[in-house]
Each structure stands twice: as structure tokens, then as C-alpha cells.
């Protein structure tokens, strides 16, 4: 059963990598700026999941902190970009 679990873990990692590639297609193709921001959002989310998969496959806890940091900074980045699209300014006076 352990081998099957490892196989499933590989499969999931592969899926997340593929998801990043697909989101990259949308990031490069656009057409509008909001499409690119949405694709960026999907990329960091899948990157975080890939890191968690590394943690699951190696059975170590060190990846958790990095995953949490990616979630935090990705959120801040997306919000800043979306706010900029909305008003042309990130922090309004």
C-alpha cells in the first residue's frame, strides 16, 4: 500500500506542475491584465501545494513554513496588483 501511496504522491505533484504550466499559458496569453493577475494567483497557489507535496513525500516538516510564507506573500501580491488595477494606486492617501 505504501508504494501505491508514493505513486499517488508523484501523480499529485505532476498534476500541480502541469497546473502551473497551464496557468503560465494564461499568464502569457492575457488578454487583459486581470487575466494575468488571476493566472499569477493560480501559480502561487499551485506552487504552495507542490511544496506541501514535497513535505508529504519526504515526511519532513521543514516545507510547512515555506508553504505558509508563499501563501502569505502570494496573497499580498495579488491584492496589491488587483488594487492597482482597480484604482491605479495601491495605497490611497
Amino acid at each position: 500500500m505504501n508504494a501505491i501511496f508514493q505513486g499517488a504522491a508523484w501523480f499529485a505533484s505532476l498534476c500541480f506542475a502541469l497546473a502551473i504550466l497551464l496557468a503560465l499559458v494564461r499568464l502569457l496569453r492575457g488578454p487583459a491584465a486581470q487575466d494575468r493577475v488571476l493566472a499569477f494567483d493560480a501559480i502561487y497557489m499551485n506552487g504552495m501545494l507542490t511544496l506541501l507535496m514535497l513535505g508529504i513525500r519526504s515526511g519532513s516538516l521543514v516545507y510547512f513554513g515555506t508553504a505558509l510564507l508563499i501563501a502569505l506573500f502570494g496573497f499580498v501580491g495579488t491584492v496589491a496588483l488587483a488594487k492597482f488595477l482597480l484604482r491605479g494606486e495601491v495605497i490611497e492617501p
Partner: peptide, 24 residues
Amino acid sequence: VTVPGTLLLVAGGLLAMIGALGLV
């Protein structure tokens, strides 16, 4: 761990990929 883990990982991977596919 392994039985629910296998199911959850396969489902999670497929769902994330379908989500990104929808993005395209």
C-alpha cells in the same frame, strides 16, 4: 494514512489540474 491519503491526493491533483485547465 495510506488509504485515505491515496484517494485524497489523486482527487486533489486532478481537481487542481482541472481548475488550471478551466483557466485556459
